[in-house]
Simulated scan of single mutants.
Amino acid sequence: MGSSCTLRALGAILHRFTNGVSSKCPNSMALQWNGLLSRKLSSSSSISSLPSWISTHIHGSATVTRTIWTVSPLSMGRRSSKIAGRKGAQDAKKAKLYARIGKEVVSAVKKGGPSPVSNTALATVLEKAKELDVPKEILERNIKRASEKGQEAYIEKVYEVYGFGGASMVIEVLTDKINRSVAAVREVVKDCGGKMADSGSVLFKFRRARVVNVKVSDADKDQLLSIALDAGAEDVIEPPVYEYDTEEDMSESYYKIVSSAENYSTILSKLRDEGVIFETDNGSELLPISTIEVDDEALDLNKELMSKLLELDDVDAVYTDQK
């Protein structure tokens, strides 16, 4: 596992020395609109001409207008079709979600017993599991597992990493053996040529939010924006658009509806009512406050590092600010 990452990292370094410059195109242009909902924009002609969704509500004597700007991020020169195995990645994401909920169930039972009536922590986890469509048999299996001899409660840990090309990563871990988890994470990061970061040196670049992921091919954009407005979503982030994207590439990309915890269930209910297929988060996601565009070599190296980290049983999620 480690030799492959090490060779790729060494190859990237040699490439930079032999060519003298980064392969990242200096003339690449990226337009990204984050905070698309309720954003205060200037009234200049360049902004006002952009496509948008507008909803006006009258509250007493005050009129409130909320706008979603529907501009997609644009990146030139990179094919998103290079990101292979999307279906496999989504299946792995779902497996990670189920594993995390199972670990949360074990921890709750260890602390307060197997009855959700008397154990409010377990009741909260089961309610979240229902919201996230976690199969009932997974919950029952982990409630039973919690009573097994030698099974310890799980502890949350966050590790921060410097990747390639200036990108950063945050690794979320839920483990019953901290020494095991940190050793495994450090080994993968070292073998792949990354660098562990001090606590707090990367995390400030991200914000935590509830997120609903909707595949582009499963939703009409106007319908999705309308649902987001009605349900009080904070943001709708459109997938980045690349110069050489094919129709298949675009159909496998995702909208992200960003929500507060209070409005999350409302958004899910409205999507269900409208027959829109969606994927939930694992309780929350970390979203980059701003994104960094890296060259193709760094992109591949970061992807491999993230993939190797996600193979670890203790790792539940890996987030990056890489575009």
Rank of each mutant, 00 (worst) to 15 (best):
S42D: 15
K303Q: 13
K96S: 08
M169Q: 13
I143L: 05
I68F: 05
S217P: 00
L229P: 00
V318I: 10
A261F: 06
P116V: 11
T266W: 10
S3L: 10
G165D: 07
E131D: 10
S168E: 14
M76G: 09
L132V: 05
N142M: 15
R207V: 15
A92G: 12
W69S: 08
S81A: 12
V241N: 01
D133T: 05
A12N: 12
D91R: 03
K205N: 14
A317C: 12
S168F: 12
H15Y: 13
V134M: 05
G150P: 14
S75F: 11
S23Y: 11
G113T: 12
L37P: 06
A12R: 09
A108K: 00
V294N: 00
E279I: 06
A209Q: 05
Q322S: 08
D91G: 02
A233R: 02
L14P: 01
G165C: 13
K136Q: 13
D235Q: 02
M169E: 12
V294D: 02
L271P: 06
D314M: 09
K111L: 13
H15A: 04
K40P: 04
D245T: 11
L301G: 00
V64N: 01
V294F: 05
R210N: 03
G200P: 02
H59L: 10
T124P: 09
G112K: 01
T120S: 11
I289N: 07
T124A: 07
E304N: 12
N263K: 14
G150D: 10
P51I: 06
P116Q: 08
D245I: 12
A62W: 03
G200N: 04
G163Q: 05
G150A: 14
L31P: 12
L309D: 07
K82T: 03
T124D: 15
D176I: 14
L301T: 00
T70W: 04
K205G: 09
K128G: 04
K87V: 15
Y264C: 03
R8A: 01
G163R: 10
R208L: 11
E148A: 07
D230T: 11
R100L: 11
V109H: 04
V315M: 01
S23A: 15
V214Q: 02
K40T: 11
N302Y: 09
R180C: 02
L229E: 13
V125E: 01
N119Y: 09
I13G: 00
R39P: 02
D300A: 11
K96L: 15
V173F: 04
K87D: 15
V212L: 06
V315H: 01
Q322C: 11
E234I: 06
K128W: 10
G85T: 09
E285L: 08
D295K: 03
R79L: 12
K103G: 04
R100C: 11
V109K: 04
